[in-house]
């Protein structure tokens, strides 16, 4: 049985490297076309992890992640909630994060299923590909983050990554629950509120983030390897995220 149900199709494009990241962490991965899951949402229950990769689903033509968010909301949300309640884990990266937030699955601190945050255009108005440092606060709140308390380097690659709460109440609630766990460590690259780079739900089992941990598969992929050899030798530290997820899913 596969561990990871990895969504593909309709313009998702960072699926192959995310599959590799999970495989390298010991998981069996089933690339699954969105339409297959749409046809039979119960497929999900034979997996331990649902992974929603980055890309441009439906071109982001109606806004980033909008079409799949609508599809998740109207056709998959019930099954996904059930899946998580039964111990399943969910990860959304970049476009996948946008989908989870806009469908109301994240952060969902009010547990109403209504979107309480969004990801809008970067304050620069431009797409940007740049490596950033991401600080993880309270790693103990999510099985994805066990033992990860450093600052992790990886790239962001998005035009619409500015995290924004619906209102002050939503923000306060999230801060109170402590689910805003990933923050841009240095300069805020996109104007996100509270420099939020990623977030979990209250259970910690659903996680989403704009930066791409799966982009740092090998040490050689770090951009300044030749000038900072000491800091980036050896396995990319962020890969712990995938090992954590797989370990939790297999438990």
């Amino acid at each position: 049985m596969s561990t990871v149900c990895l969504l593909t199709g309709f313009g998702i494009n960072a699926d192959a490297e995310l599959a590799l990241a999970f495989r390298n962490a010991g998981a069996a991965v089933s690339p699954t076309h969105v339409s297959a899951l749409q046809k039979d949402a119960d497929l999900l229950h034979s997996y331990g992890i649902l992974a929603v990769p980055g890309g441009f689903s439906f071109g982001d033509h109606l806004g980033s992640g909008m079409v799949l968010a609508s599809l998740f909301r109207s056709e998959l949300a019930v099954s996904i909630r059930q899946f998580v309640a039964n111990g399943g884990l969910v990860i959304g990266i970049c476009n996948g994060f946008q989908i989870l937030v806009k469908s109301g699955l994240l952060p969902d601190v009010h547990e109403t299923g209504e979107p309480s945050a969004s990801l809008v255009w970067n304050d620069s108005g431009r797409f940007i590909d740049r490596w950033v440092g991401v600080r993880i606060d309270r790693p103990e709140t999510s099985p994805w983050l066990s033992g990860m308390s450093e600052t992790y380097e990886m790239p962001i690659r998005h035009g619409e990554g500015r995290f924004l709460f619906r209102d002050e109440d939503a923000r306060q609630r999230v801060l109170d629950c402590g689910v805003a766990t990933l923050h841009y460590a240095e300069a805020n690259p996109n104007g996100s509120q509270d420099a939020i780079a990623g977030i979990t739900d209250r259970s910690g089992r659903i996680i989403g983030m704009m930066p791409h941990p799966e982009a740092y598969l090998y040490p050689e992929l770090h951009p300044v390897r030749r000038t900072h050899t000491s800091s980036v030798a050896g396995e990319p530290p962020i890969l712990q995220l995938f090992r954590n997820g797989v370990a939790a899913a297999l438990r």
């Binding site: 590799l20 431009r126 940007i128 690659r157 982009a215 050689e220 992929l221 951009p223």
Partner: peptide
């Protein structure tokens, strides 16, 4: 160039920018 995704597919080891400030 920063507006081009230059590393999707996780293959790009030699990137368009180098150095300590990239």
């Amino acid at each position: 160039v920063r507006q081009y995704d230059h590393e999707v597919q996780a293959r790009t080891v030699g990137k368009p920018f180098v150095g300590v400030e990239a």
